[in-house]
Structures are given as C-alpha cells and as structure tokens.
C-alpha cells in the first residue's frame, strides 16, 4: 500500500510508488535549483509550484534567502524609473543580476499584435514604392539614343576626299574633320528631339 501524500504519519516502510518517486525526485531537483540560486522554471505544475513556494517561505523565514546589493540596486533603479515615469508599466520585470540566466521575456498581447503587423506594413510600403517606380518608368518621356546610321550618314570619303601620298601623314587632321562632322550630327539629333521634331 502506497503512502497517502496528505498523511502526516510517515512510515519509512511504506512502499513508494514509482510515480511518487519520480515526482519526489523532480521536486528535489527543483529545490536544488532554488538553493543554488538558479531560480525555478517558469513552467511547472500548480502542485509543484505550491510546494516550491512553501519551501521558499521556510528558507526565507530562516534567513536563507537574501537580496544581493547588486540586485537591490537594480530593483531601486527600476522603482525610481517607475516613479519618475508614471506611465511606465509597473509590470516591467526587474533586470536580472549579472551572470544570471535571463528569464523568459513576457510581451503584452497588444505589443505582440502590433509587432506581428510590422512585416505586413513593411511589405505594403515596399509594394507601393515599387508600383510608383514602375508607373514613373512607364509614363516618363522617352529619350531615344541617336541612331548610328544618322550619325554616320556622311561617308568619311566625302569629308576627307582622296588621300594622296604626300598627305598620308596628316591622319590626325583627317580624324579631327571626321570627329567634328560626327559631333555636329549628334548635336542636330539632340536639338531635334528636344524641339519635338523627328529624327
């Protein structure tokens, strides 16, 4: 017959069920964590939590749990901030001491809801910007580059004529003539486009 957990009369000869042994071992490990100052997990059964609280009350009443100076300073900082900024929610957790594992962060439902909308807002803005860019590209006046055929409508032979042997060394001068002619052609093309004329 197994022991009734609520029975005060403990008999070491009472058989221990495997379930009770496992539960007791888990509770012992929770106490290990609490005694070592590592805190207890946020998620545990209501029964375990109640028993851990009893253990904490006993340890606290025995003076076994003290607030460190650093922790006290952190709490005072948080209190002063809360007092100065009365709109600051009082439920903001006190920052943990250095080296302590961070407790799981609790986010309010409103904050989580707003945060979940952020990707959608960003995507909507990005889509609007992209649509505006496409509209500008489609509707802006088009400036076409001049056709090479226009720029080269006069042949080089017409410009420089026949190159005699005695003028064979004046290649630079001939290149200047051709370049000036091509430049004139480009300018005519540009003026025609600006004035709305055709090429």
């Amino acid at each position: 017959m197994t022991h009734d957990p609520d029975d005060d009369d403990f008999d070491p000869d009472d058989p221990i069920s495997p379930a009770e042994l496992a539960h007791a071992r888990g509770f012992g490990e929770l106490i290990d964590r609490a005694v070592a100052g590592r805190g207890v997990p946020a998620a545990m059964s209501a029964d375990d939590r109640a028993l851990v609280e009893v253990a904490t009350v006993i340890r606290g009443a025995a003076g076994r749990i003290a607030l460190t100076d650093a922790r006290a300073a952190s709490i005072v900082d948080a209190a002063l901030l809360a007092a100065v900024d009365k709109d600051r929610p009082r439920s903001v957790s006190v920052p943990p001491p250095l080296g302590a594992p961070s407790p799981p962060r609790v986010v309010s439902i409103d904050a989580a809801r707003k945060r979940s909308l952020l990707p959608w807002i960003a995507a909507t803005v990005a889509t609007a910007v992209a649509a505006a860019a496409i509209a500008i590209l489609v509707t802006r006046p088009v400036r076409h580059a001049p056709s090479p055929s226009v720029a080269a409508r006069r042949s080089a032979d017409q410009l420089v004529g026949v190159i005699t042997r005695d003028r064979a060394g004046d290649a630079a001068a001939r290149i200047d003539v051709i370049y000036a002619d091509r430049l004139d052609g480009w300018r005519e093309q540009g003026l025609a486009v600006r004035s709305g004329g055709t090429r």
Binding site: G39, V52, E53, V54, T56, V57, G60, A61, I65, L67, R71, I75, V76, A78, A79, L80, A82, A83, V84, K86, R90, S91, S93, V94, P103
Partner: peptide
C-alpha cells in the same frame, strides 16, 4: 518574501513598494 514564497513576485512587490514610497 516570507509572505509570498516566490522570489520574482517578491521582487515585483519590493519594486512597487519603492516606487510608491518615492511617489
């Protein structure tokens, strides 16, 4: 702490106590 049994709750109450005192 001896009246709450939970360290985190006790710290919250302590902070509220301090804030109320300042106010």
């Amino acid at each position: 702490l001896p009246r709450t049994g939970d360290a985190a709750t006790a710290e919250d109450i302590l902070r509220d106590t301090m804030a109320t005192a300042v106010e």
